[in-house]
Write a protein that binds this DNA or RNA. Structure first.
Lengths: 319, 319
DNA sequence: CTTGATACG
DNA sequence: CGTAGCAAG
C-alpha cells in the first residue's frame, strides 16, 4: 500500500517516450549546385499558443485553472527554478509527473509552498528515483486516492485521484512502452484497466484526466509520424487505446478547441537539438468527460517554458 | 592478458582512500564566554612547497623530471584542463592514476599530445571506469610491461613498468583497503607481492616507484592520525607494509629531503571542504632504490594545483 | 563530494 | 541528452 505522511500522502508506480526518428532529409533546395551535404538550418515549424480564452462556449468566465507538467526529475526541476513558473502561472491545482523522488528526498522549497496547503505524492514503491506523480491543491479535495485499485498497476506512483464537488481529477503518468516496445504488452493491459477505472468514476461524477499519457494520438500530434509508427508513444496499439478511451465519452480538450492546429507539442527529446527544431510530440493532455465539455474555456500549451523535456500545459474551466 | 594498441598499450586492474574523520574540536579560545557552539574558522595548517632544488646532494644538476598525479577520472580531469598543467610543468615522464577510462574512450586531447610520443595505458579488465594507470614518455623506454606477473593482481590496471638505461620506473596505483577495510586482507597480499616484484627488479637495476600508494606512512603524513588508525590508508598493516618496503632498501624521497615538514599532503577528500582546511593525507610518493639516493634533487608537492582530489607531485633527478 | 557505469526515457 | 540511482573513493 502507498506510504502516507500527514496530509502529505503517497501512492506508488514506472514511464514511455521513444526518440524522435531523425527527420527525413526531404525537400532541400540545392542552391548553387556543387556542395552535396550542406545542412541548411530549416526554420522550425512553430506553434504559437494564442491568448487564453477566458470563457466557455456558453460565455461563462473560467473559475478553475489546472496545470500539468512532466518535470523529468523534481529535484533537478526545482534547481532549474520550475517553481518560479508555478508561482507565476498560479493554477488552482498543479499536477506533476516523473517526480523521480522519494518522499524523504523532496526539496524543502516545494514541501513548504504555502500557496498549496494540500499536497499529495505518489512514489514508486520499488525502484527509487523512478516515475512518481504529485498533486498540489489550493483547496482541499473531498477525498484523495492513489492508484487504480489494481496491485499490478499501483507500484510505480502513476495515479492520484482527487475528488472535488463537481468532478474528479485524475493525475496520471502512463507507462512508457519502452525501447524496442518491451513494455507494450503491459501498456495495453494498463490502458484497458485505466479505462475501466475511469468509467467507474465517470458514472459517479464527471472527470478530468490529465498528465503525461505517453501517446501522440494522431499524425498531427507529432513531427515525424511516418518514422515513428513503431516507436513507443505512436504505435497503433497505443493510439487505438486513446481512441477507445475517447469513445467512452471523453474529449481531448486541446484538440477539441484547436482541431487542425499543427506543430503543437508538449515533449521534445533532449537529443539532437529537437526542441530548437520543434521536433516534438503532444503527449500531455487534459481529457474531459463530455459532461464537462460546455464548461471548457481553454487548454494552453506553454511551449516556451523550460525546465524539463516536457513543457507545462494549463486548463481553464468555467465550473 | 592486457590489451594492446600500437605503441599505445595496455595492462589491466581496482583503488583505496577513506574519508577524513572530522577534526577534533580541540583548542578553541572561548572569547567572550557565552555562545557554546560558535565555529571559529581555524586557519588551515599550511604546507608551502619551497622552490625547487635543482641539484643533487653531490651538486649535479637535474636532468630528469617525472610527475605523478592521481587524476580521479581522466575524462573529467581533461575537461578541467589538467593537460594545461602538464604542458606547463613539462615533465619528461608523466604517470597518471585512476584514469577510470577504457582505451576506446580516451579523450583525443591526450591521445594526440605530440609532446609525449610514447604513451602506455593499463586499464581495468573487468570493471569499466575503475582504477587504471597511464605513463606518458618523451623518450621511448627500452621495454614496458604491465602488472606484476601475478594474475590475481593484474586485472585492475594498477602497474606499468618502464625500463630505461639507468633505472626502472614503476608507476603504481595501490588498491584501496575500502570502507570498513573490506579489502585490507587483499591489500596485504598485494603489498607482499609488490615488494617481491620490486626486489626482483631492483636486483637488476635501481628503480623508481611512483604513484598513489594509498598509505600515509607516519602520523606526520596526515592531518588526523588519531582518528584514522582504523581507516583505509592508515591502518597499522598498511603503514607496516610501507615500512617493510623501505627496509628492503628504498627511500621515501619527499621525507628523505624534508624529514620533519608537516602538513604536506597530496590528497584531500572532496567531502567536508577538506582541501580548503588542508585536512589531507600524503598518499602519493616517489620511492627510490638507495642506489639512486645521491642522484635525488627534489620532490615537489604541487598542492595548489586543482583538477582532482589529489594534487600532482614532481621528482627531479640528476641521472 | 565527485567520477563513472547503468537504467530509463 | 539528461535525471537518478549505485559503487567506489
Amino acid at each position: 500500500m502507498p506510504k502516507r505522511e500527514k496530509e502529505v500522502e503517497v501512492g506508488g508506480k514506472g514511464s514511455l517516450v521513444e526518440d524522435d526518428v531523425a527527420e527525413p532529409v526531404g525537400k532541400k533546395s540545392k542552391k548553387g549546385g556543387g556542395k552535396a551535404k550542406e545542412k541548411e538550418p530549416e526554420a522550425p515549424a512553430i506553434y504559437e499558443d494564442p491568448p487564453e480564452k477566458l470563457t466557455s462556449a456558453s460565455g461563462r468566465k473560467y473559475n478553475l485553472k489546472i496545470s500539468s507538467w512532466n518535470v523529468d526529475g523534481l529535484r533537478a526541476w526545482v534547481k532549474k527554478n520550475g517553481l518560479d513558473w508555478v508561482r507565476q502561472e498560479d493554477p488552482d491545482i498543479l499536477c506533476l509527473q516523473e517526480t523521480k523522488c522519494a518522499l524523504k528526498a523532496l526539496p524543502a522549497d516545494i514541501k513548504d509552498m504555502p500557496e498549496y496547503p494540500h499536497k499529495y505524492w505518489a512514489c514508486s514503491e520499488e525502484k527509487e528515483g523512478y516515475s512518481g506523480v504529485a498533486m498540489l491543491c489550493k483547496n482541499k479535495p473531498i477525498n484523495v486516492t492513489y492508484g487504480i485499485g489494481i496491485e499490478e498497476h499501483d507500484q510505480e506512483g502513476r495515479i492520484i485521484t482527487a475528488e472535488f464537488d463537481m468532478y474528479y481529477l485524475v493525475a496520471a503518468y502512463v507507462p512508457n512502452s519502452g525501447r524496442g516496445l518491451i513494455r507494450l504488452d503491459y501498456r495495453q493491459k494498463w490502458d484497458v484497466d485505466l479505462r475501466a477505472y475511469l468509467k467507474a468514476l465517470d458514472e459517479k461524477k464527471p472527470l478530468i484526466l490529465c498528465g503525461d499519457l505517453n501517446v501522440a494520438h494522431q499524425e498531427i500530434d507529432l513531427k515525424n509520424p511516418k518514422g515513428n509508427k513503431k516507436s513507443a508513444g505512436f504505435t497503433p496499439q497505443e493510439r487505438e487505446g486513446f481512441s477507445t478511451l475517447l469513445a467512452d465519452g471523453y474529449i481531448d480538450s486541446f484538440r477539441h478547441i484547436y482541431p487542425d492546429v499543427p506543430y503543437a507539442y508538449t515533449f521534445w527529446t533532449y537529443m539532437m537539438n529537437s526542441r530548437a527544431k520543434n521536433v516534438g510530440w503532444r503527449l500531455d493532455y487534459f481529457v474531459l468527460s463530455k459532461a464537462l465539455q460546455d464548461k471548457l474555456c481553454d487548454n494552453k500549451i506553454r511551449s516556451k517554458v523550460i525546465g524539463s523535456d516536457h513543457c507545462p500545459i494549463t486548463l481553464y474551466m468555467a465550473m
